[in-house]
Design a protein around this nucleic acid. Sequence first.
DNA 1: GGCTTATATAAGCCACTACTGATACGGTCG
DNA 2: CGACCGTATCAGTAGTGGCTTATATAAGCC
Lengths: 123, 123
Amino acid sequence: MHAFDVLGDPVRRRILELLAGGERTSGAVCDVIREEFGISQPAVSQHLRVLRDSGFASVRPQGARRLYAVRHEPLRDVDAWLDPFRRFWAPHLDALGTELARGRRADRLRDDGEDDYDEGSAT
Amino acid sequence: MHAFDVLGDPVRRRILELLAGGERTSGAVCDVIREEFGISQPAVSQHLRVLRDSGFASVRPQGARRLYAVRHEPLRDVDAWLDPFRRFWAPHLDALGTELARGRRADRLRDDGEDDYDEGSAT
DNA sequence: GGCTTATATAAGCCACTACTGATACGGTCG
DNA sequence: CGACCGTATCAGTAGTGGCTTATATAAGCC
């Protein structure tokens, strides 16, 4: 399942948000999700499985419980996919921070018009 | 349709990548997509419609053709959603660029409220 | 050991989404 | 005007994903 498909589900996004706050047990996640979305425990468990399988979450047993945590790699992939678009809304940032982190790829960018990008060569 | 659902489809992601290179006509997009994915013209048109409806693309008629272009707002929403996770892989950046941008953005919002995307303050 | 808790899996159902072929509709050109 | 291009829409269909209920497995506790 592609990263964007995984994030396509609101329950999974919410779970990731929860995990962003730190490790949580399956049960703890389940409580919140059941409350907010009104779905069953197996449903949550299935979402956790998807997150595991797609690399968005890691698990660590603690007695009978399972501690889930965020894994950043797939999220970074998503972030990377956004990169070519980011210049549309943050040209100055491009020159400042993001640019720094990713290596400059945007020499050809003009920053005198955010709306005005280069006409694709028609080939 | 939620932004992440829109991006969940590989064809739509590809179309956005194409449009990131500059405006293209429906036909031009169609040619590439048909070649790469082997789907029909109506299928591409339907994807373009989804992109339109969800705000990811804008259209501009030019004679009998339709010129499509990327609209950045929904992509920025996605970017914003990623923010709380970004610290996992770019802590220094957080302090340097992204954080700065968020701060400034929030600042501008407070200042002249030009934007209306979810600031995340709701929790 | 036997009951309870914590979590995962299995099977079946339903809704949704993306596709195709057919068709409509406006613009262009001879 | 009429034929044709470029694009969008419609109707129908197949596949997929997420949900539920029922059940399995493992750990904790008396």
